[in-house]
């Protein structure tokens, strides 16, 4: 535990001293929400769905850049090679990295939620909030693994390019800017049109799961869960193989 704390602190401090990392990721989702999301208007559930879409966009930014680019950068550094020689396990370091990602995910989500509550007039009762939080966390697992896979498979420049390629297009196609498939109509979530092909994207399924959470787990939740599970398995396999491959390159 002491070592996890030591690595957590070191990792957190490094990111906190890098404004070029956190300022864009903290401000971009909230600015986009204010410019695009708030004007969409609609009923309570729709406004909530739109807000949650930007929350997902924010979390997606954290996992793609912190895991994808962060892992790729650290993989190529002499410091990482040195850490191979000290008595610390890979799981300890990964736990610390995950904990830091959670901290930043919360830090990046707070401005979006605050803007939704204060400027977007978005209501949410505690039950809804708990369900949405569970859905956000569940969907962040496959996307976090996607970030790790990117970091282990690509060099820094490749991972950076891919992160940019994934971040915006996947958010857009997954419906995160418009509140997802459940918020494309002006009515409440349960009256929205049926989800399309985007449901089979990780971001689309994630968005659909959060909409189901808003509506009390109605709608396409089972399909969204199944899709997210499939992506979890696929990205986990890619991340593990990528990790082993990168270790083989460094270690052998």
């Amino acid at each position: 535990m002491t070592l996890v704390r030591a690595h957590f602190r070191a990792e957190l401090v490094q990111y906190l001293r890098t404004p070029s990392f956190y300022l864009p990721l903290a401000s971009y989702p909230v600015l986009l929400y204010l410019a695009v999301g708030v004007p969409l208007g609609g009923g309570d559930d729709r406004r909530l769905a739109v807000l949650v879409g930007y929350v997902l966009f924010s979390v997606l930014g954290t996992v793609t850049f912190q895991f994808g680019v962060g892992v790729a950068v650290s993989r190529q550094s002499a410091w990482e090679r040195w850490l191979f020689t000290v008595p610390v396990s890979a799981s300890t370091r990964l736990t610390a990295r995950l904990a830091v990602a959670c901290v930043f995910a919360v830090l990046f989500v707070v401005p979006v939620v605050a803007a939704g509550a204060l400027l977007g007039g978005v209501p949410a009762d505690p039950d809804q909030a708990a369900r949405i939080t569970a859905a956000v966390l569940a969907g962040s697992v496959p996307l976090g693994l996607m970030g790790l896979a990117m970091g282990y498979w690509f060099p820094v420049r490749g991972a950076l390019g891919l992160a940019n390629l994934v971040y915006l297009p996947l958010s857009f196609v997954g419906g995160l800017f418009s509140g997802g498939t459940g918020a494309t109509s002006t009515g409440p979530v349960e009256d929205a049109r049926a989800p399309g092909i985007e449901l089979f994207l990780p971001t689309g399924a994630w968005s659909e799961l959060t909409h189901a959470a808003i509506g009390g787990w109605r709608g396409s939740a089972p399909i969204a869960v199944a899709v997210l599970l499939l992506y979890t398995a696929a990205f986990a396999a890619l991340a593990v193989v990528g990790y082993r491959r990168s270790q083989a390159v460094l270690f052998t």
Partner: peptide, 11 residues
């Protein structure tokens, strides 16, 4: 103490 030293620059 390795030959190549490269610490995290913000620590």
């Amino acid at each position: 103490m390795p030959q190549a030293v490269d610490f995290p620059e913000y620590l």
